[in-house]
Design a protein around this nucleic acid. Structure first.
Lengths: 168, 168
DNA sequence: CTATAACTTGGAGTCGACTCCAAGTCAAGG
DNA sequence: CCTTGACTTGGAGTCGACTCCAAGTTATAG
């Protein structure tokens, strides 16, 4: 058996879709651990590292900032989450963010579908509908339903930015 | 009947969760149309404007840049999408983006669930699994199964189509 | 009359996340 | 030996999206 395959930074970039510069940048800000080097100083990556980079890329898609990723990577990298209860809370809360983000996204999809499908014979919708609202989320099929859900997620400040100007 | 309710920028900020500064900024970059002013020059907003701002906020959550929102807002603001076929294509394509983003997000949720639940009795997963992939999702709050996504979104080179080592 | 508050404007500053650059090292090929 | 190419480094520059500021206006309250 071969002693575990390794990759250059270029190969790693190709495999992950993250640019070499960005990978170095992640190392620079210590989001990634310092990669091992060959004798000539070149970085070498293993499958494990590629997985980590993919995880970063994945989390980025959820709108998580690089800073907030650190704890995730910690859990991912070493083992047992149960040993870091604080972290677990952190993560669980981000899970909720994501779930609500999915709802948000599904609503945009519904909104788009609505716009695209209803085509023309619509006169006024502008008063209550275009909050891209709905609530059921399923996968693909173009959903008709647009049930009135309170767009609670709208103002309740999802995650980005600051809290909504001190709610009275 | 009353001649349509209007709001100050402050009220609008409160209702939408978008700061006054940001609302003015959106106007400055013409993402929002120039708001009407009162005699004293203060901006006034109507329900329609608030809806538009909410739509922006909504689209932002889907990771869309302000620039790419412009066409969406055009469709939303005035009427019939069927009149702008180019736009419709644009939007349809973003819809696909979002759908795949939902898949992405669902996988992160699954990944988190996996990590949180398997708790400790897991030895190694680090070689192939932590691409935050999985495909089952037992009920939690609401969502049912979403879709049997493969990790195609993980960059063009989705290498081995190997199913995740059947988590759990 | 003053001062507080809610706004206006243009412009400057900040921050996260890259992205690019110059100068240097090293290995292989012509 | 010289060049080419793939890398290294530290640091500077860019870009999107705000966020803050100072100076000014108008309205209301004491």
């Amino acid at each position: 058996m071969m002693a575990e395959q390794t990759f250059t930074i270029k190969q790693t970039a190709e495999q992950t879709g993250i640019s070499e510069d960005t990978i170095r940048y992640y190392e620079k800000i210590a989001l990634l651990p310092r990669a091992d080097r060959k004798d000539n100083g070149h970085r070498i990556y293993r499958q494990e590292d590629i997985n980590t980079i993919r995880l970063i890329s994945c989390l980025k898609k959820t709108g998580m900032s690089l800073e907030k990723m650190r704890p995730f990577l910690a859990v991912s990298a070493d083992a047992d989450p149960a040993e870091y209860p604080e972290l677990v809370e952190h993560i669980r809360s981000h899970r909720e963010n994501i779930v609500s983000q999915i709802a948000s996204l599904q609503q945009v999809v519904d909104f788009i579908d609505m716009k695209l499908e209803e085509g023309r014979y619509r006169r006024d919708y502008s008063d209550e509908s275009q909050d891209c609202v709905s609530e059921k989320l399923r996968g693909e099929p173009k959903s008709k339903p647009v049930s009135p859900v309170e767009m609670s997620y709208f103002s309740v400040s999802a995650k980005t930015g600051k809290p909504p100007a001190s709610v009275k």
